[in-house]
Amino acid sequence: MARCILTVDDSSTMRQMITFTLKGANFDVVEAEDGVHALEVAKGRKLDLIITDVNMPRMDGLTLVARLRALPEFKFTPILVLTTESDQSMKMRGKEAGATGWIVKPFSPEKLMDVVNKVI
C-alpha cells in the first residue's frame, strides 16, 4: 500500500504543484486548505508525512503543528513546513512547535523529494 502524505496550503495552485510532485513519486496524497481543515482530514487517518504552509486562514501552520503533536497518533509523524517565510525566529517557532524541517518556497521537486525521502 502506498504511503500517504497530507499537504496543507490555502493556495490551490500550490496544493496542485505539491500533489503533482508527490504523486509522481507514487505517494498517496490528501489535501487540506487550512489548519482547521487539516485536523478534520487527519482525524482517523494513517499519515506517513504532513507538509504544511504557515500563513493560512482560520488556523496557521505553526498552530497546526502544535495541535497535531498534542494528538497521540501524530506525536512522531514527520511534519515539514513549506512556506515563503525564511525568518530565523519563525523557523525557531516551527521547531519549538514540533516541526521536523523547514523548506522555503519556491521548492524544487528534486529538493522536496530529497527531504521527503529523508524524513519519511
Binding site: T100, G101, I103, V104, P106, F107, K111, D114, V115, V119
Partner: peptide
C-alpha cells in the same frame, strides 16, 4: 531557483 531547506 529554489528556497533553502533545514532539517531540525
Amino acid at each position: 531557483m529554489a528556497g533553502e531547506v533545514e532539517l531540525f
